[in-house]
Amino acid sequence: MTQGRVLIIAGSDSGGGAGIQADLKAVTALGGYAATAITALTAQNTEGVFGVLPVPTDFIRQQMELVLRDIGADALKTGMLHDALTIETVADVLEAEAPGVPLVADPVMVAKGGHALLQPEAVATLKRRLLPLAALITPNLPEAEVLLGRPVPDAAAMPGAAEELLGLGLKAVLLKGGHLPGEEVVDILATPAGVMRFEDRRIETRHTHGTGCTLASAIAAGLAQGMPMGAAVARARRYVRAAILAAPGFGKGHGPLGHGVTVDPGRV
């Protein structure tokens, strides 16, 4: 398996549990090479997001172009893009510099603590410009409800919702069901070839900060390494589950995962 180069375009998390920090750890733990273009700085910890400082779009463009023209990328991952101008800038660069490179787009809208990470007026731009470029989008249920403009009330409604998202002109959708109550966590992967259902027993823990970022970057690592979509999703879900179980227990709120769970210090 090739190492796989992943360019991650997302925001920074000062607490290290989500965002660029989680993305870097996940790709590295799975044997890939991660490069970054940072879209925003956040002041946050396990208890919430307390400040957001957007990065100027010209500088986002410069970061992306310099990485793509030198190091290159076998896959791309987007996370927090914050506003419409950032989305337009990222889409422009991807179209010009990385045509055909698979993109995993995590439509980050709200932090786990409730802080808005995407301006409401930017949702239409996200749907129009970025999501059609993606090989896969990875919305959770609240994000899917925003994209669809309707509720997704239970697990039984998830396959239909995922297929409806495909109807927006998307190539593949991983609809994540972790927000639903119950002992089982269900995710639905919808592609033009059909629907795959993934199911695991819920881990009762508060240490789940950054699971969405981590999952999307883990999938991107798999695609960069040449894995088929279904296999990349399955491996990424196994990795996230292991990282939750290996969580270090830090913080007073939603704690971080144990991202280094696959790294063997004895081999260093």
Score class of each variant (00 low, 15 high):
258 G>E: 03
141 L>M: 13
234 A>M: 02
185 V>H: 11
99 P>H: 04
237 R>E: 12
51 G>W: 09
26 A>C: 14
55 V>H: 06
137 I>R: 00
34 A>F: 02
175 L>D: 07
7 L>K: 15
230 G>C: 03
157 A>H: 01
86 T>M: 09
244 I>F: 03
82 H>P: 00
204 E>S: 10
244 I>V: 15
188 I>E: 00
206 R>N: 13
164 E>V: 04
162 A>C: 14
253 G>Q: 04
265 P>G: 12
201 R>C: 02
37 A>L: 09
9 I>K: 11
149 G>V: 04
264 D>F: 11
123 V>H: 04
162 A>I: 14
209 H>F: 03
14 S>H: 12
203 I>C: 10
42 T>N: 15
172 A>P: 11
179 H>F: 07
113 G>S: 15
26 A>V: 13
188 I>H: 03
135 A>G: 14
1 M>R: 08
196 M>I: 01
49 V>N: 10
21 Q>R: 15
214 T>P: 02
38 I>R: 03
245 L>A: 15
244 I>Q: 08
176 K>C: 05
172 A>W: 07
196 M>D: 08
157 A>E: 00
232 A>H: 04
255 G>P: 13
9 I>H: 10
129 R>P: 10
230 G>L: 01
184 E>C: 06
30 L>W: 05
126 L>H: 05
223 L>E: 12
238 R>T: 11
158 M>A: 15
176 K>H: 10
156 A>D: 08
33 Y>P: 01
257 L>I: 15
55 V>W: 07
84 A>P: 05
27 V>N: 11
30 L>R: 11
263 V>P: 00
67 V>G: 10
5 R>F: 00
87 I>V: 13
62 Q>L: 12
214 T>V: 02
179 H>Q: 13
